[in-house]
Amino acid sequence: MTLRSLLKRAIPVALALTLTACGFHLRSALVLPPDLGPVRVVSVDRYSPLAESLAQALTRAGAVPATERTTDATVLDLMAEQWGDRPISLDELGRAQEYSLRYAVTFELRRPDGTAIVPRQTIELARDYVSNPVQAIGTEGEREILQGEMRREMVASVLRRLDAVARHATAAAAAAPTEVTPPPTSDTTTP
Results as ranks from 00 to 15, higher is better:
residue 1 M to V: 13
residue 2 T to G: 08
residue 3 L to V: 14
residue 3 L to F: 08
residue 5 S to R: 14
residue 5 S to V: 13
residue 6 L to K: 11
residue 7 L to D: 07
residue 9 R to S: 14
residue 10 A to R: 12
residue 11 I to R: 11
residue 11 I to D: 05
residue 13 V to G: 01
residue 13 V to A: 10
residue 13 V to W: 06
residue 14 A to N: 01
residue 16 A to M: 15
residue 18 T to F: 15
residue 21 A to R: 05
residue 22 C to T: 08
residue 22 C to Q: 09
residue 24 F to A: 15
residue 26 L to S: 13
residue 26 L to I: 13
residue 26 L to V: 15
residue 28 S to I: 07
residue 32 L to H: 06
residue 34 P to W: 01
residue 37 G to K: 03
residue 37 G to W: 00
residue 39 V to Q: 01
residue 43 S to G: 03
residue 46 R to M: 12
residue 49 P to D: 14
residue 49 P to R: 11
residue 50 L to S: 00
residue 51 A to I: 06
residue 52 E to M: 09
residue 53 S to G: 10
residue 53 S to I: 02
residue 54 L to W: 00
residue 54 L to A: 00
residue 54 L to V: 02
residue 55 A to E: 08
residue 56 Q to S: 14
residue 57 A to E: 00
residue 57 A to Q: 02
residue 58 L to R: 00
residue 59 T to K: 13
residue 61 A to T: 00
residue 63 A to N: 00
residue 65 P to S: 02
residue 66 A to Q: 06
residue 67 T to R: 15
residue 67 T to N: 12
residue 67 T to Q: 15
residue 70 T to I: 06
residue 71 T to D: 04
residue 72 D to I: 03
residue 72 D to S: 12
residue 73 A to C: 01
residue 75 V to N: 10
residue 76 L to F: 03
residue 78 L to A: 01
residue 78 L to V: 00
residue 78 L to G: 08
residue 81 E to A: 02
residue 81 E to T: 03
residue 82 Q to D: 14
residue 83 W to Y: 09
residue 83 W to G: 05
residue 84 G to H: 10
residue 84 G to P: 05
residue 86 R to H: 12
residue 87 P to F: 01
residue 88 I to S: 13
residue 91 D to A: 10
residue 93 L to I: 14
residue 94 G to L: 10
residue 94 G to T: 11
residue 94 G to N: 04
residue 94 G to E: 11
residue 96 A to K: 08
residue 97 Q to T: 15
residue 99 Y to F: 15
residue 101 L to N: 09
residue 102 R to K: 09
residue 103 Y to C: 07
residue 106 T to S: 14
residue 106 T to Q: 10
residue 108 E to M: 07
residue 108 E to V: 06
residue 108 E to L: 03
residue 108 E to D: 09
residue 109 L to K: 04
residue 111 R to Y: 08
residue 112 P to I: 00
residue 113 D to K: 07
residue 115 T to N: 11
residue 115 T to L: 13
residue 117 I to Y: 07
residue 119 P to G: 13
residue 119 P to Y: 11
residue 120 R to M: 13
residue 121 Q to V: 12
residue 122 T to P: 00
residue 122 T to V: 10
residue 125 L to A: 12
residue 125 L to G: 02
residue 127 R to E: 06
residue 130 V to C: 07
residue 130 V to E: 11
residue 130 V to A: 10
residue 133 P to R: 06
residue 134 V to E: 10
residue 135 Q to L: 08
residue 135 Q to S: 13
residue 135 Q to N: 09
residue 136 A to P: 13
residue 137 I to P: 01
residue 137 I to K: 08
residue 138 G to Y: 01
residue 139 T to R: 00
residue 140 E to A: 07
residue 140 E to V: 07
residue 141 G to H: 04
residue 144 E to H: 07
residue 150 M to D: 03
residue 151 R to C: 01
residue 153 E to T: 01
residue 153 E to Y: 00
residue 154 M to A: 04
residue 156 A to H: 03
residue 159 L to G: 03
residue 159 L to D: 00
residue 159 L to V: 03
residue 160 R to I: 12
residue 161 R to E: 15
residue 161 R to C: 06
residue 162 L to D: 06
residue 163 D to M: 00
residue 164 A to P: 02
residue 167 R to H: 01
residue 167 R to C: 02
residue 168 H to L: 15
residue 168 H to V: 07
residue 169 A to V: 11
residue 170 T to I: 12
residue 170 T to L: 13
residue 170 T to H: 12
residue 173 A to W: 05
residue 173 A to R: 09
residue 179 E to C: 12
residue 179 E to S: 09
residue 182 P to D: 03
residue 187 D to S: 09
residue 190 T to A: 04
